[in-house]
Simulated scan of single mutants.
Amino acid sequence: MRFSVEAAALKRAFATLNPVLVRKGFTTIVENVLLDLSGDTLEITSNDLDQAARIAVTVTGEEPGKTTVNAMRLKSIADTAPEGAQISLFATDDPADGADVRCGRSRFRLATLPAKDFILPPPVKGIALELQPGELAQLLSAAVCTSTEETRYYLNGIFLHRKGKQLCATATDGHKLAHIPLPLPEGGEEMGDNPHGGEGYIVPNVAVRHLAAMAGDKACRISLSETAIEISVRMGNEDGPLTYRTELVDGQFPDYARVIPARTHFSGVAIVNTERFRAALKRCSVALSAVENADPKAARRPKEIIALNFESNVLRLETSGDYGESASEEMDIEWDAPALRCGFNWRYLDAIADAVDAERMCFWPDVGGPSRFEPEQEDGRVYVVMPVRL
Rank of each mutant, 00 (worst) to 15 (best):
A7D: 09
A7H: 01
A9M: 08
L10C: 05
L10P: 06
K11H: 15
R12C: 10
N18L: 07
P19M: 12
L21H: 02
L21A: 11
K24H: 11
G25M: 09
F26K: 15
F26C: 09
E31D: 14
L34W: 02
L35Y: 01
D36M: 01
G39K: 13
G39L: 14
D40S: 14
L42R: 04
L42T: 11
I44Y: 01
T45F: 06
Q51L: 13
Q51G: 09
Q51N: 03
Q51W: 00
A52H: 01
A52Y: 00
A52K: 01
I55P: 11
V57H: 08
E62L: 14
T68V: 07
N70L: 12
R73H: 09
L74P: 10
K75H: 14
S76V: 04
A81Y: 12
G84T: 03
S88G: 14
F90M: 11
D93M: 07
G98N: 01
C103D: 11
C103I: 03
R105Y: 02
P114A: 10
I119Q: 05
L120W: 00
G126E: 00
A128P: 00
L131S: 02
Q132E: 15
P133F: 15
E135N: 12
L136I: 06
Q138I: 02
S141K: 13
S141Q: 07
A142Y: 10
S147W: 09
T148N: 04
